[in-house]
């Protein structure tokens, strides 16, 4: 019974937010519902099951709507809802917490790029960026390394572990600036709604003011938290390369050497530059002890 009912709840609603009239085998849904659900004096079995079907979809769609404003802006509001419905139909929640609801969105968008056409790459950048924020918000942290921990290890042997809440992203678009602009627009709309003051912009005008899609440019980003607040930090390409190497278990010496060798920049005092990066990363607590 639970299996049948859950399958019924997981089936998408119609375009009018109602339960589908037919079951997967083509039989009338009312016939299936009345097999296990009693009608009452006001509602038949179909209508009673429909309350749960609607409740399920409103809850999960609301959750993705709130958690992925950037992706929503990239694909467009209406298509986002259709995309989210297709995604959840293919990947119903596999976790006890709604926090994880979008954990396979990237995978889904890679497999079904038509949902984000013609901005497939931008959508992928955005969904990776927004998922990284979920991780940075409440992902695990290990005790940060102290200078004493690494005092005796030479750079040629030294391997550093990065905090699990930290995500390094190599992006084709400046989705960080784009998301900030999107969130600002949404809060302007909300303020517009909350106030009846004469000088506040009419809601429709604010809504119509679109945020321009970002231009193509290489961006290296670290998404992390500090004092439990969420941050995104732009990184130089070489700094990004070093951190990425470290996260793969490459020693500090090799990671720096590779990054500097690959760099096209000249006239750089690399030892000073690298030292300042490591100082900043240590201060942020990005390096941690192996648990």
């Amino acid at each position: 019974m639970q299996r049948v009912m859950a399958s019924a709840l997981f089936r998408p609603l119609t375009s009018k937010w109602g339960m589908q009239k037919r079951w997967v085998d083509g039989a009338p849904m009312e016939a299936l519902a009345s097999k296990f659900i009693k009608p009452n004096d006001r509602l038949n079995s179909f209508e009673r099951l429909e309350i749960y079907n609607r409740q399920y979809w409103f809850r999960v769609l609301d959750c993705l709507y709130d958690d992925y404003p950037g992706l929503r802006a990239v694909v467009g509001e209406r298509r986002f809802m259709k995309m989210a419905t297709a995604y959840l139909t293919q990947y119903p929640s596999d976790s006890f917490t709604l926090r994880d609801l979008g954990n396979r969105l990237e995978q889904f968008l890679r497999a079904e790029p038509h949902w984000s056409a013609p901005r497939e790459e931008l959508a992928l950048d955005m969904v990776r960026f927004e998922w990284a924020q979920v991780v940075a918000f409440d992902g695990p942290a290990h005790p940060p390394l102290t200078p004493d921990d690494i005092l005796d290890t030479p750079p040629s042997k030294l391997q550093l572990r990065l905090q699990p809440y930290l995500t390094l992203l190599e992006l084709n678009f400046a989705v960080d600036d784009f998301l900030i602009a999107i969130k600002k627009r949404e809060s302007d709309v909300l303020r517009g709604e909350a106030s009846n003051a004469m000088n506040s912009a009419p809601k429709a005008a604010v809504v119509r003011k679109r945020v321009r899609y970002p231009k193509r440019e290489k961006v290296h980003l670290a998404v992390h938290r500090h004092d439990n607040l969420l941050y995104y930090k732009r990184l130089d390409q070489e700094a990004f390369a070093i951190l990425t190497s470290l996260s793969r278990g490459i020693t500090v010496e090799d990671a720096c050497l590779e990054a500097v060798t690959a760099s096209k920049r000249t006239d750089v005092d690399w030892s000073a530059e690298i030292k300042s990066w490591f100082d900043a990363w240590s201060a942020l607590g990005w390096f941690c002890r192996t648990p």
């Binding site: 019974m1 639970q2 299996r3 859950a6 997981f10 399920y56 929640s93 976790s95 006890f96």
Partner: peptide
């Protein structure tokens, strides 16, 4: 209540028979 089947979650509090 119940709310999950085969590791899939409805995130709802569903009534029991």
């Amino acid at each position: 209540c119940w709310g999950s089947v085969d590791g899939r979650y409805t995130h709802d509090l569903l009534p029991m028979p």
